[in-house]
Amino acid sequence: MKKIIIGEHIVKSFGEGEEKRNVLDGVSVEITEGEFASVMGPSGSGKSTLMFALSGTDGIDSGKVIFDSKDLSAASENELSDLRRTTMGFVFQQPTMLKNLNILDNIILPSMRGNRKSPVEITEKARALMKRVGISELEKRDITQVSGGQLQRAGICRALMNSPRIIFGDEPTGALNSKSAQEIMDLLAEINADGTAVMLVTHDVMVAARTERIMFMRDGKIVSELRLPKFDATDMDDRVEMVSAKMREIGI
């Protein structure tokens, strides 16, 4: 499979002087086309920082990040912004949406800039995505008039508007109850099955067990990996035990 992201010896530090520490300490990682991957580790291990580095959201001190053959360290801020907007999608624990816009307009707004499609075409795509994720009836509601799971579905619609090569998710189920979390993971699995790569950062063993490759981080390094077969709901207990056993083995 084609590699869409290559990270080579990534170093990212925070603080100065004696307080300076490497949050990413020479991390090398590759993400392939259509992959369903996750990153686990204790708080402060560098999980989210790695995601921000690989997506060009945050700069790095040294090393290299290549996205689809483009060196992100050599790209301007405008180029990085356009690249994220057109080829990447982001789903966060708490979707950031504007209170003065309804759900449909929040989904559409980020896609309007530089889009060659007409507003009508963009709206039609948003409505098609909302239908796909089961929130068609919510398009006129304010963001305060929907549940957390529904808001996260809207966030996924927004992330898919420009048909990204990869979806990055930072604790995408962290604020949801177990039923809503499972539904969101079902949706992300469907998106991945259609060919979109998905990379999740999570503390949740149940979430990681749904993915096919799990990278375990500690102290700014990837210390181990676990590969699982394609998800089968009947194997969930076994998958969870495999992830848990690996965590015990490496002490995280």
Score class of each variant (00 low, 15 high):
Glu35Asp: 15
Ser43Thr: 11
Thr211Asn: 00
Glu16Cys: 05
Lys12Asp: 05
Ile143Trp: 06
Phe168Lys: 09
Ser62Val: 14
Asn102Arg: 05
Gly44Lys: 03
Lys230His: 14
Lys47Cys: 05
Arg141Cys: 13
Ser55Asp: 09
Ala75Asp: 14
Glu16Tyr: 08
Asp25Arg: 06
Gly149Gln: 04
Met236Asp: 11
Arg21Asn: 12
Ser48Gly: 07
Arg127Ile: 11
Ser136Trp: 11
Glu212Cys: 02
Ser178Trp: 01
Arg239Gly: 06
Leu200Tyr: 00
Arg21Gly: 06
Gly89His: 11
Glu183Gly: 01
Leu50Cys: 08
Arg153Phe: 10
Ile143Asn: 06
Leu129Glu: 09
Glu190Gln: 13
Gly7Glu: 11
Lys2Asp: 14
Val201Phe: 00
Glu33Thr: 13
Arg213Val: 01
Val243Gln: 08
Ala175Val: 05
Thr196Ala: 01
Ile60Thr: 15
Asp186His: 08
Ile107Ala: 07
Gly34Trp: 03
Arg84Cys: 13
Glu19Pro: 09
Gly44Arg: 02
Lys12Asn: 10
Ile122Tyr: 00
Ala208Pro: 02
Lys12Phe: 07
Ile214Trp: 00
Thr196Arg: 00
Val205Ala: 01
Met199Tyr: 09
Arg248Phe: 08
Met247Asn: 12
Ser38Met: 03
Leu98Met: 15
Pro229Lys: 02
Arg116Cys: 10
Ser163Asn: 15
Leu83Met: 15
Gly46Trp: 02
Arg227Cys: 02
Arg141Leu: 14
Leu80Asp: 14
Gly44Met: 03
Thr86Asn: 14
Val39Leu: 07
Arg227Glu: 13
Ser244Cys: 06
Asp186Phe: 02
Ala197Val: 04
Met247Asp: 11
Ser45Phe: 08
Ala208Ser: 01
Thr196Trp: 01
Ala245Thr: 15
Gly34Leu: 03
Ala154Glu: 13
Gly220Trp: 00
Ile222His: 00
Thr202His: 00
Arg85Gln: 10
Leu160Met: 15
Leu24Arg: 04
Asp219Trp: 01
Gln182Arg: 12
Lys99Leu: 09
Thr144Gly: 09
Met112Asp: 00
Leu54Arg: 11
Leu83Arg: 08
Leu98Val: 15
Lys3Leu: 09
Ala128Gln: 13
Lys70Gly: 07
Leu50Ser: 07
Asp219Ala: 04
Glu8Gln: 13
Ala175Lys: 04
Ile66Phe: 09
Arg132Asp: 13
Ser48Val: 06
Glu30Gln: 15
Ser43Ile: 04
Ile60Asn: 13
Leu228Asn: 01
Leu129Trp: 05
Gly174Val: 06
